[in-house]
Amino acid sequence: MENLQSIEQFEELKNGEHTIFVFSADWCVDCRVIDPILPTIEENYADYHFVKIDRDKFIDLCVELDIYGIPSFLAYAKGNEVGRFVSKDRKTQQEIEAFIDSLKA
Rank of each mutant, 00 (worst) to 15 (best):
E64Y: 00
D47Q: 15
D35A: 15
F85K: 04
E43W: 03
I34N: 10
R32N: 13
K52Y: 05
F50M: 07
F10W: 10
S6C: 04
D60A: 03
D35Y: 06
L65N: 10
K78R: 12
A75D: 04
I34A: 10
L65S: 01
I37N: 05
E42P: 02
T19G: 01
Y76T: 09
L65W: 01
V33Y: 08
F23I: 12
K57P: 00
A25I: 03
R90W: 06
V63N: 01
E43K: 15
G83M: 09
S72F: 04
L13Q: 11
F50G: 04
V33D: 03
R84W: 08
V29S: 13
F10D: 00
D26E: 13
Y45W: 05
Q9K: 13
N80R: 14
D66F: 03
L74K: 10
V22F: 01
K14L: 12
K57T: 00
F21N: 07
N44W: 04
L38W: 00
K91W: 10
F73G: 05
W27M: 05
E81D: 08
H49N: 14
I7Y: 00
A25W: 12
E81M: 15
G69W: 00
G83P: 13
Q9M: 10
C62E: 01
E17S: 12
Q9N: 02
W27F: 06
I41P: 02
V29M: 06
K78Y: 15
E42F: 04
Y48I: 11
D89Y: 11
A77K: 14
K91P: 03
Q94F: 11
C28W: 02
G69F: 00
D47G: 08
D30R: 12
F85M: 11
R32H: 12
G69I: 11
F85H: 06
V51P: 05
G79H: 08
F58K: 00
E64P: 00
K14C: 12
L65G: 01
I37C: 10
W27R: 13
G16L: 04
V33F: 09
L38N: 06
I20Q: 07
V29Q: 11
I41W: 09
K14W: 10
Y68K: 12
